[in-house]
Design a protein around this nucleic acid. Structure first.
Lengths: 333, 333
DNA sequence: TCACGACGTGGAACCGCTTCCACGCACGAC
DNA sequence: GTCGTGCGTGGAAGCGGTTCCACGTCGTGA
């Protein structure tokens, strides 16, 4: 491995000068610069990122803490993150979170600028203590699809999303509308589902429809689970004529349950989801689209900007628009 | 930030001793170990990965070079990689490749143990020179869904996959079978599609069916493109009664084209894809399943093992099984 | 009693880079 | 001619670890 002093010796200059050339310092004569660059090219020299990082106290890496499996939509967001980083000088470190222990371990590790210069926390509300620690340590953080006190975030209005979905069903004439969502106390503390449910209840109330707890089911954020829950819901007496699933993944489970029971969708049961993941277009699932890719993109851009300016990202919440996408799984009651 | 010497001072020992405790060296007395551990816990000390990496010459990081956007199936493989890393001490660095320039830049950077200790190259045949350079530099490499001379790899028999798909259509009585695949010379040099096409031609020949170039279309690995190509194919005179798309993504494009033209699938046109990505189950797409998750998992495991043993991974090719998954887009002619 | 290991330990050197400080030199002003 | 002044440069210190070497201090066997 060729090092900076190899280059220095070969070029007949000091290591400091090579470093200055490398970092575009103006305090190098044109002649020296040219000579050094020639040697660098000749030797195929590339600076060692760890040495550089150790010396500078930052590592040109962005960390993304993501429930990579748990949330299908997180992948789409990560695509946006990757896109933002493509033309930056930063590398991307992926921290896959499955459990709260996992998450806390990662966040503790990352509460220092020696593993990542900035942090993207995706689709997962971090514990407030962790956020405080991160802020104190001066690690820039942007939350994507989550909010936290004093921290920049990118997301959507989930309550409004719940309203949009439910309103769509109400406007189609449905009176008995079911809801399938995440368990209120899930291990990683996801709250989107609860917010969407709130929107659902608001619209029911506004439409003068009673809120019937029997029409609501909660479970893990998973297609299979949603399938079981909605199977149960559909078999009950006086079943709903429409179901709002708090995510597309769950919505697809609902559709499957309905079909298994010989129900036509949307003839016998209307189904609306949330997210608009790639799958949904093929499945024809009516849904509330949130800009997944864009959320990752924007989040990463905010972080890069903050790093550029060497100040923490403004603790604003950036709200991205939601949009009703009507496909073929919803119809008049 | 608390450093190793802070711990050393506080514990009243030398920095070397703290390091020995940290690394589980047996050359530390039990009493000292306990004292140091207490101080570490007390101070909340965590070793700086960059300093450690610089000193040890390795960085406890695995790099994954992946066409993250271009290949939908790559995400599923990455899930396997992430799973394998979950209970290892390694972090995961994601290098998203969009263009050959991108790829070569990454591979050049990674031809040193200072950014990643080992490399997973996913769904992308690396240039032979890069592989040689990597080997010379002693960077362990495992190819996932690709093969390369002298390098460990995990993959499937694409030719056989092409045979399986085509045979299924032939057995259903189809005589005019179309093929939609990647452009033979695509920027990143993907070859799977070509291999699958070879299997297609073999089975046609074995079945005594003529190979008709008019039934074959090539284009970018993309749903939209496949849609256009198959639209063209279906509108031609004497169109096929079945189409083998060399990936599910393309297969979904074919289905869309058929439906746009008012054809029933599989009534008027049978469609079979390849991969069995998550989407396909919902779309009811008949396909040849390859173990995507498992390929990433195995690839990462091989790499971790090699790192453990401190020798390059055996340059074997690990072949994973393929499986025909019949759903609702194929039917008798 | 002495020599010799083994053991536990401190400390220096080193990993490869950045950055600060000091120095030599050319130049212009007096 | 002398004295700043500023530029270009070399070199040392430092980033935070690991590891090697040397140095007591015991306990053991001759």
């Amino acid at each position: 491995m060729v090092t900076i002093s190899d280059v220095a010796v070969q070029a007949g200059v000091g290591a400091g000068t090579v470093s200055r050339v490398l970092n575009g310092s103006p305090r190098v004569s044109e002649a020296t610069r040219a000579k050094v660059l020639a040697v660098i090219d000749d030797l195929g020299y590339r600076p060692n990122p760890m040495a550089r990082g150790l010396s500078r106290g930052r590592c040109q890496t962005l960390g993304a803490v993501v429930p990579f499996f748990t949330q299908a939509s997180a992948v789409a967001r990560m695509r946006g993150v990757a896109a933002a980083l493509d033309d930056s000088r930063y590398d991307l470190m992926l921290f896959n979170v499955e459990t709260p222990v996992h998450r806390d371990e990662f966040l503790a590790t990352l509460t220092r600028r020696d593993r990542a210069d900035g942090l993207l926390i995706v689709s997962m509300p971090p514990p407030p203590e962790a956020l405080v620690a991160l802020t104190l340590a001066g690690v820039p953080v942007v939350l994507v699809d989550a909010v936290g006190a004093g921290v920049a975030s990118v997301g959507t209005d989930d309550v409004e999303g719940g309203r949009i979905a439910t309103r769509h069903l109400v406007e189609l004439g449905h009176r008995r509308i079911g809801f399938i969502g995440d368990a209120p106390s899930n291990p990683l503390g996801f709250v989107s589902s609860g917010r969407r449910e709130q929107g659902y209840r608001e619209v029911l109330a506004a439409a003068g429809l009673p809120f019937d707890p029997a029409l609501v089911r909660h479970g893990a954020h998973d297609r299979e689970v949603a399938l079981r829950l909605s199977d149960d819901l559909i078999r009950a007496e006086d079943p709903p004529t429409a179901i709002f699933a708090s995510s597309d993944v769950q919505g697809l489970g609902v559709i499957e349950a309905a079909r298994n029971l010989g129900l036509r969708v949307p003839g016998d049961l209307s189904v609306i989801g949330f997210d608009d993941v790639e799958v949904s277009a093929y499945a024809g699932l009516t849904t509330v689209r949130q800009p997944l890719f864009e959320s990752g993109l924007l989040g990463a851009q905010l972080l890069l900007e903050a790093l550029q300016e060497a100040h923490p990202p403004a603790a604003d919440h950036h709200e991205l628009p939601l949009e009703l996408v009507v496909r073929t799984t919803t119809a008049p009651a």
